[in-house]
Design a protein around this nucleic acid. Structure first.
Lengths: 232, 232
DNA sequence: ACCTGAACACCGTTCAAGT
DNA sequence: ACCTGAACACCGTTCAAGT
């Protein structure tokens, strides 16, 4: 018997870093990031908890690796498009990847230090601006302005709790909002697709994202055209 | 002896919700949000852990209350200023409050559902746009565009890890970045106050924040002036 | 040399027993 | 009626003992 993986003994697929990371992504996808513990992940892989530590140094490194898996799903850059189309498509592709893995947003935000995969994405975006005629300084600020939007997400701030079921309670809540926060009520339904909805309801996230993205791209283009430099 | 607080017996100041929240803020300020556990907070107050549950239902509610304390530090709105100055100052004041309590950013981001204090802040901002001549629909989108920036923070994405001490290691890292991520290197120093710094170093956060805030306010003003409505 | 069970030092929260 | 100690069901990770 060669000392390789025992064929014929259908025990377990050998553990590998890749298999650990993919199982982590699957677990987080299915049960949320709070359900992802080293112990539960090990159980899912039919392995003792400490076995995971052969492939990742600790939980932080597990999360880093899982983020890389998600970022790996972003489409490659468009070839031969103008800077604006290229940037826009790249960011919207990142958004699609992140929407498939909702747990990834808070995890990306909490990372300190960038992995090679993260740096690849940033380098690629920066290259698009530079090729489009943006100066190094302007590109620097423009990348800061994008911030986490380069990953296709932003922090929404409208309360997301669904309104109470009971019509009487809902009426009472309505009264209270009308009295203390009239302006919120006033704009609540505005911009919603289905009319008569309550705060934060029926609001089209994709529309809001593209609205802001385009607002920023417009701003960038304007600064580029006027050869913006920081006033000193 | 009246059954009130025993005078003369210098035991402990009576626990109250307010005292619990303030102690939570102080603990998070001093030792970070990870150090804030119900058990440690109780210990700091010289109280058994379960005593806290008289004043907050659970840890989530504790965090909600702590966020309210921080938001309570934001200055009241400017009277009689134009919309742009009023909005700008309010947001920069929120930023100052948040900078005093760095743990508050991730906590605010993780809240679901808005407290009355949060709604007050939003209502006040919305009122400023409306008074400045913004339509309800445009104000709706503009508030989404601000997102978490209304609290004076945004997610920075540049790697923040300090470069290695050892000059030889630093040179090697430099080589690696130059080879694989040339564009990142190219814009790294640009926009930094002190020259010759490395990625993410010497970068003026306050400048970046105001750069983007002004870019967005410019965009808002432009849409307002052209009576923007969503194309259907 | 490799692997892993038990243990450590924590969590948030429940609950029953005590005053 | 009020308060609280012990307990429950978890964590991530260390480490020594086993094969």
């Amino acid at each position: 018997m060669a000392p390789t993986v025992q064929a014929g003994a259908p025990r377990r697929v050998a553990l590998s870093r890749d298999r650990v990371l993919r199982a982590g992504v699957a677990l987080a996808d299915e049960e949320g990031i709070d359900a992802l513990s080293m112990r539960r992940l090990a159980q899912r892989l039919g392995v003792v908890p400490m076995a995971l530590y052969r492939h990742v140094a600790n939980k932080e490194e597990l999360l880093d690796g899982m983020v890389d898996v998600v970022i790996g799903e972003i489409d490659p850059p468009l070839e031969g498009a103008d800077w604006r189309t290229a940037v826009r498509e790249r960011i919207l592709s990142a958004r699609r990847a992140l929407l498939r893995h909702p747990w990834a947003r808070p995890v990306i935000e909490s990372r300190t230090g960038a992995s090679p995969v993260v740096l690849d994405h940033m380098n690629s975006l920066i290259g698009m601006f530079r090729a489009g005629g943006f100066s190094a300084v302007l590109t620097h600020h423009v990348m800061h302005a994008l911030g986490s939007r380069m990953w296709g997400f932003t922090q929404e701030v409208f309360p997301s709790a669904p309104p109470p079921e009971d019509p009487e309670q809902r009426a009472a809540m309505f009264q209270q909002v009308a009295a203390r926060w009239p302006h919120i009520l006033e704009i609540a339904g505005a911009g919603a697709h289905d009319q008569g909805s309550v705060v934060g309801q029926g609001c089209d996230d994709q529309f809001e994202f593209e609205f802001t993205l385009d607002l920023m791209l417009d701003g960038f283009e304007r600064l580029r055209r006027q050869d913006w430099t920081p006033r000193r």
